[in-house]
Each structure stands twice: as structure tokens, then as C-alpha cells.
């Protein structure tokens, strides 16, 4: 096994080691997060990509320990500034949430409480974590709205969420998250529900705020464009596991894992004309969680899979270019074609 921190150029603010979170349904255990490893460098952005159901949201909720029944964190360590979060009491956790680690969610339309004003919802953070008076907190809330680029903030604090557009609401969510100067911001698909022109505004805002406030960001998304544009490091997830973890350039320019390659190849591009060629596809679909493959989770869809892949689960290992990869091809045990070139068929 390798250490996630090995590939970082900076100090890690957060290190997730072998995290396991499961949902215990009536019939079976859904291993939503099944041994995840990554680290987030200080002041930089880590992207987590992967298709729907791969465990991105559950990973991020696990970091804040917000998993609700029937879910449970059943193993691993989450080191935040060197301390294991999983060992902390609920009261200590509350001091971290919204204060040292904040989170914004995918659905700006439903993530704000409809019966309280925007100002009340931002103020709450100040009142909990900084013991501010109501009046003072409201004043700071207006300043936060100004910071996230909402015009006439003094009027806006008195408005209810339904009076704002989707883009505005996401700005309000960011204002709530940043109220107490968190060291780590977890953004779970912050722009997926927004139009591209609004997405561009929000991403720009986040980048700008990161430059000014120096926080670290975990950017969860399934949009490889967003990753390329905003992230410094990337963890690619598949079925509850990290299959590739590397610097962003290495993932896009020199992907190693067959799933990462397949993902990049199946992406139709708006900036390049692929002509009339067919898109490369990853055959088949994600197996259902009650039918987990025994070996490599990707084996049933992988064009290179061998007997070994179907039988045994590979570990995350360092490849020659530094990417950390969970694939037999890059190990000494590999029993297939020794010359195999995973990214030979790359189209872009």
C-alpha cells in the first residue's frame, strides 16, 4: 500500500485512510464507501470524480460525520490537521462543522430552509461559532453576501430563499459555508444544478475566494471539465473505491487506470471536432451494490480484465509516473499482456 500523502507537494490538511461507510438495508449491506484513501493539500483543491452512485457524496458526508441511519462509518481514519475526526465526541464535531470544515451541496433550490430569511440562516453560523449577538451577526451576514457578489446585500438579508434565483441561492450557500473562515470547504457538485453561464460565475467566485482566504477545497463533481479547470489533485472513484489518485495534469495527460481512460474517451467534447468517429464506450453498466464483483470492481466492464482481475482485488499502488492506481496491470503479479497500453486508443 502507498500513502496518499506521498504525491502531495504541500502539507496535507486532511488525510482519509481506508474509510469505509456502509448502509445496512433490510436485505443487504451497501458498501457505499469501501476503503477510500486520499489527502487534501493545504490551500489547494482536490477533485473527486466518478459516476453516479460511486460514493462521492457519502465520502464527503462521512468527513463531517453527517451520515444518517441506516448508514454507518465502519472503519478507517480521517485525519484533520493530524487528529482523527472519527475519535471525536459529538460536541467536538459540532465545533468543527461549519467552523473549520464547511460544506455546500448540490441542490441550491432545496438546501436552504424556506421559512427563514437568508440573513437568519447566515447569522446562525456566527451565533453558534463566534458567540455574536443577533444584531452583529446580521451585520456580518450582509458583509458575507457582499463578499459572494450579491448586489444590495442589506435588502437581500431580509429575503427568503424562494425570492432568489438558483445562482443567488448557491452564492448564499457559499456565504454560509465561508462565514467562519473554514480551513476546508467541501463542495458537493456545487454547480451541477446550474446553467453553464451561472456555473462559470460560481466557479470563478470560488477560485477568487480561495485565493483571498487561502482555504483548501474538496470539489466533488462528475464533470471532467470542472475538474480540469478548478482542481490541483484528483481522486477518481468507482464503486466506493478510489481507482486513480494523482495530480490533475497527470490524470488528464497520462491516465493509467482503464476506467479513467474509458471515462476520458467517452466524453464528447465541445471544443474539439471528433468528426464522424464513434465515441469510445465503457461496455456494460455499473453492477448493483448487492452484486459486488469479487475481484477488481471494474473487471466486468474492463477491456483488459484477466482471471486475476476477476478473482482478486488490487491495492492502490504507485505507478512509474507517480499516479496512485488500483489496477493489476501496474503490478508484478499482472498475468496478461506485458506490453498492454491502456491509453493506446485515446482519441483526445
Amino acid at each position: 500500500m502507498v500513502k496518499a500523502t506521498d504525491i502531495l507537494d504541500q502539507e496535507p490538511i486532511l488525510e482519509v485512510k481506508d474509510l469505509q461507510t456502509s448502509f445496512f438495508t433490510d436485505k443487504f449491506e451497501v458498501k457505499a464507501v469501501d476503503g477510500v484513501n486520499f489527502a487534501v493539500p493545504k490551500g489547494k483543491t482536490l477533485g473527486i470524480v466518478g459516476e453516479s452512485g460511486s460514493g462521492k457524496s457519502i465520502t464527503s458526508l462521512s468527513i463531517l460525520r453527517l451520515i444518517q441511519n441506516p448508514g454507518k462509518i465502519i472503519g478507517g481514519e480521517i485525519l484533520f490537521k493530524g487528529e482523527n475526526i472519527l475519535k471525536k465526541s459529538e460536541a467536538e464535531m459540532r465545533k468543527i462543522r461549519g467552523n473549520e470544515i464547511s460544506m455546500i451541496f448540490q441542490e441550491p433550490m432545496t438546501s436552504l430552509n424556506p421559512v427563514y430569511t437568508v440573513g437568519q440562516q447566515i447569522s446562525e453560523s456566527f451565533m453558534i461559532h463566534q458567540n455574536m449577538s443577533k444584531k452583529e451577526a446580521m451585520k456580518r451576514s450582509a458583509e458575507m453576501l457582499e463578499l459572494v457578489g450579491i448586489p444590495s446585500p442589506k435588502q437581500r438579508v431580509k429575503q427568503y430563499p424562494h425570492e432568489l434565483s438558483g445562482g443567488m441561492r448557491q452564492r448564499v450557500m457559499i456565504a454560509i459555508a465561508l462565514a467562519c473562515d473554514p480551513e476546508l470547504l467541501i463542495a458537493d457538485e456545487p454547480t451541477t444544478a446550474l446553467d453553464v453561464t451561472i456555473q462559470a460565475q460560481i466557479l470563478e467566485l470560488m477560485k477568487d475566494l480561495q485565493d483571498r482566504l487561502g482555504m483548501s477545497i474538496i470539489m466533488i463533481t462528475h464533470d471532467l471539465g470542472v475538474v480540469a479547470e478548478t482542481c490541483d489533485y484528483v481522486a477518481v472513484m468507482y464503486m466506493g473505491k478510489v481507482v486513480e489518485y494523482a495530480k490533475v495534469r497527470d490524470v488528464f495527460k497520462n491516465p493509467k487506470h482503464p476506467y479513467t481512460v474509458g471515462l476520458l474517451n467517452s466524453l464528447p467534447r465541445h471544443d474539439i471536432d471528433l468528426g464522424d468517429v464513434e465515441l469510445q464506450v465503457i461496455e456494460g453498466s455499473v453492477p448493483s451494490p448487492d452484486n459486488l464483483p469479487k475481484g477488481c470492481r471494474f473487471a466486468p466492464r474492463c477491456p483488459f480484465a484477466t482471471e486475476l482481475c476477476h478473482e482478486k482485488l488490487p491495492d492502490l499502488e504507485q505507478s512509474d509516473n507517480g499516479n496512485q492506481i488500483r489496477c493489476w496491470i501496474y503490478t508484478d503479479e499482472w498475468d496478461g499482456d506485458q506490453e498492454v497500453d491502456v491509453s493506446a486508443k485515446r482519441t483526445t
Partner: peptide, 14 residues
Amino acid sequence: DQDYIRTARAKGVK
């Protein structure tokens, strides 16, 4: 189960 309840918890509300 609504998203805004999760938001409140993520803020560190009791």
C-alpha cells in the same frame, strides 16, 4: 430528510 436539514447540521447546529 430534506436537504436544508442537512445544511443546518453541517453548520454545527445542535
